[in-house]
């Protein structure tokens, strides 16, 4: 009976993941391995960026004054738009995780505040390969070299995510593994300021147990995959801490604004 319960939970979380996220690893891999019917538009310099802005991300850069700003600020703005959309998707995903909506509302806020960026960077790896990153719902591909060529501090934004992604992708997780991993990131009992820690720890324990069993059956040849993934949780926390510091620096020194939802998340984070 317990095993059946665990399988049901894994299935519910996987279905919620497939339903709520516009992009997933299997979709991204089809595009990144050249198997999509239409290949993504490659953004590798200022000209191709301008073209992409007119077609792929017109909604994000049009009619809000952003189109006259410098390239780094425009890219930063598009990153923010994508982040906001992903936070929205993650919120819906979290609400579909059994037990989450029954938690104290303040704790739901806390879990999202501290979990969304870790989850976002874990999922971002699915859209990355060593040469670049899928953007605009998989319709564009921006090269790592182009992102590195931007001026400081913007050039420091994505490289740590690529470095993480290359190691993370080497674990060869599929979407069913990632769904449970993302749920485990969100339902984390040691976020600062949680009211009902015990309740969340129980939820987390259940999800982590299901993740462990799922990895055993889905990756029988990699006995150490579970502990490796637990280490990735710590790596993601570090990645988010550094990202939050960089965003604060950009906010202080650059002529750019931060979306109100992201401001809420970053404020008093670490």
């Amino acid at each position: 009976a317990q095993l059946a319960d665990q399988k049901t939970l894994a299935k519910q979380i996987y279905e919620a993941y497939l339903k709520n996220f516009n992009m997933n690893k299997s979709k991204a891999r089809v595009i990144l391995t050249g198997k999509a019917s239409t290949p993504p538009f490659v953004i590798h310099d200022m000209d191709t960026l301008r073209l992409a802005e007119k077609t792929l991300v017109a909604k994000m850069v049009g009619n809000n004054g952003i189109q006259n700003k410098e390239v780094e600020v425009r890219i930063f703005h598009c990153c923010q738009c994508t982040s906001v959309e992903t936070v929205t998707e993650l919120t819906e995903f979290a609400k579909s995780v059994p037990g989450f909506v029954g938690l104290d509302l303040n704790d739901q806020v806390t879990l999202l505040k501290y979990g969304v960026y870790e989850a976002m960077f874990a999922m971002l790896a699915s859209s990355m390969n060593k040469d670049g990153l899928l953007v605009a719902y998989g319709n564009g591909f921006i090269t790592r070299e182009f992102l590195k060529s931007l001026r400081k501090p913007f050039s420091d934004m994505m490289e740590p995510k690529f470095e993480f992604a290359m190691k993370f992708n080497a674990l060869e997780l599929d979407d069913s593994d990632l769904a449970l991993f993302v749920a485990a990131i969100i339902c984390c009992g040691d976020r600062p300021g949680l009211v009902n820690v015990g309740h969340i720890e129980k939820m987390q324990e259940r999800i982590v147990q299901v993740l462990r069993l799922h990895l055993q059956s889905n990756h029988p040849d990699d006995a150490f995959l579970f502990p490796k993934l637990l280490q990735k949780l710590a790596d993601l926390r570090q990645l988010v801490t550094e990202h939050a510091q960089l965003v604060q620096e950009i906010k202080k020194t650059e002529d750019t604004s931060l979306h109100p939802l992201l401001q809420e998340i970053y404020r008093d984070m670490y």
Partner: peptide, 21 residues
Amino acid sequence: LKEKHKILHRLLQNSSSPVDL
């Protein structure tokens, strides 16, 4: 905490209200 995270709070309570980009 809810007061300091109005948009997150709204997303949690009402999924049908989109966030402006």
